[in-house]
């Protein structure tokens, strides 16, 4: 079964016809602009959250001015669940660097939390960071806490290089001369409509839930252990294909 908000990121997920749509969880749960934190339901639309924060001169610099992939209706849960690298990854950090807490529902129906409602916490394991990019394969993300930043610090807007067809994202060593694709300003990320031949230390993500590049066989085993721990009966979609 695949967890879905509005389904706009489906191209990045394994094929699945059994869709579980997240209902409810479409409200701002706790917003404290004085403390630069917000906690929202995963079904909150990115555009709505961006507008709310802008009223107080705040933003999440990982989010573009309009949505994420550029489709109407994109949700916070989709942003975090997909956890895709973005065009300002090297200057403002990855999506997981802005997630400070999470409420999630296991396949058993039990609800588990992680993180805190403050910008800094090392209490327990960082399940909320781990869940970023889990693409619905481990648990349903119900609520997400984010730290916020002054709007003035938001990077200049870039169009996210998403192609009409499948998009592949590559992390490469700086200096790698790609013969095809669009490279970010840091020279470390390349978006392309095809899988490129990258150096051994590089890695990347592809459509349909593919992860390629260096993979220690033990880490693959740990990732399977993680799946077995949080979703022992395999209710949710499979994890990354390596």
């Amino acid at each position: 079964m695949r967890v879905s908000g509005f389904g706009t990121g489906a191209v990045w997920l394994p094929e699945c016809t059994d869709i579980h749509r997240i209902e409810d969880f479409d409200q701002v749960v706790d917003y404290r602009p004085d403390d630069l934190v917000v906690r929202v339901g995963s079904r909150v639309r990115l555009d709505d959250l961006t507008e709310l924060l802008a009223l107080d001169g705040l933003c999440m610099p990982i989010v573009r001015n309009r949505g994420w992939l550029g489709y109407p209706g994109e949700t916070v849960g989709g942003l975090v669940g997909l956890g895709l690298p973005h065009f300002h990854q090297e200057s403002v950090g990855a999506i997981r660097d802005w997630v400070i807490g999470m409420k999630m529902r296991l396949a058993s129906g039990e609800i588990v939390t992680s993180g805190a409602g403050v910008v800094k916490s090392v209490a327990g394991f960082d399940l909320h960071r781990m869940m970023v990019g889990s693409r619905g394969s481990l648990a349903e993300i119900l609520e997400i806490g984010f730290r916020l930043s002054p709007l003035a610090s938001k990077p200049r807007e870039h169009e996210l290089p998403i192609f009409d067809g499948p998009t592949w994202i590559h992390r490469v060593p700086k200096g790698f001369a790609a013969d095809y694709g669009i490279m970010d300003a840091s020279g470390r990320w390349i978006w392309s409509d095809r899988k490129l031949d990258i150096p051994p230390s590089g890695w990347g993500l592809g459509p349909g839930g593919v992860r390629f590049g260096i993979v220690d066989p033990i880490s693959a085993r740990y990732r399977q252990n993680l799946k077995n721990t949080l979703d022992p009966n395999g209710v949710w979609t499979e994890g990354w294909k390596q």
Partner: peptide, 26 residues
């Protein structure tokens, strides 16, 4: 690892961020 195996997660280009998120702070 706790069993004595040597495992590499990520590297100079990053990667394995999900597992690293659990290792850092563990």
């Amino acid at each position: 690892s706790a069993r004595g195996e040597v495992v590499q997660l990520g590297g100079p280009c990053g990667g394995d961020e999900d597992l690293l998120s659990l290792v850092v702070g563990s």
